[in-house]
Amino acid sequence: MTREQTQSRWRMTVLSNYLAVLLGVILPLLAKATGSPWGWIVVFVVLVVTISITFRKAFKSTGLWTLTHAKPSTLDERELEQTHAALGVSYRWMLVVMIATMYLLILARQGSLGQWLGWVDSIASVLAMAFLYVAHTLPAAIIGWNQLPPANDATNDAAVAR
């Protein structure tokens, strides 16, 4: 498998992970709308398993989680540069999304818009949990998304003659 193919597969895993998180966020709304919770409990279990498996494949086994959560003193200059850039981008994205969500929550809790935005308020705690998860995984996702995965660097593989 080429590095490009590995990267495409990794991207699909990350997208599946975040899609499962998104479904987990709207699950209480779906359960409330349909009435019967048992089917949704099964969906919830499936989502938790999906998130766990894709998290392990995308972030833990690739070392990206360790990279973005390591002490700076344990990283080399390339890793520091990568994590610094990824944390910066992640911080900006999270800031915009969090401010927008908080504004929606304020609108949902007061005024005439409450009748249309009440659903945001009902999933506020689940949203907070999802944001915590995304805030911790987003830097790793940004690094993996933008960079081709390392080749088999552990071995003394063939050098490119120059």
Partner: peptide, 29 residues
Amino acid sequence: AVLRNERGISRKELATAIGVNYQTVGYLE
């Protein structure tokens, strides 16, 4: 890469000697 191969040194050995992660040697090469 060519110097490392010529001297029969692995990426891990070079990485340890210069104080970086072995993957960084790959990215450099």
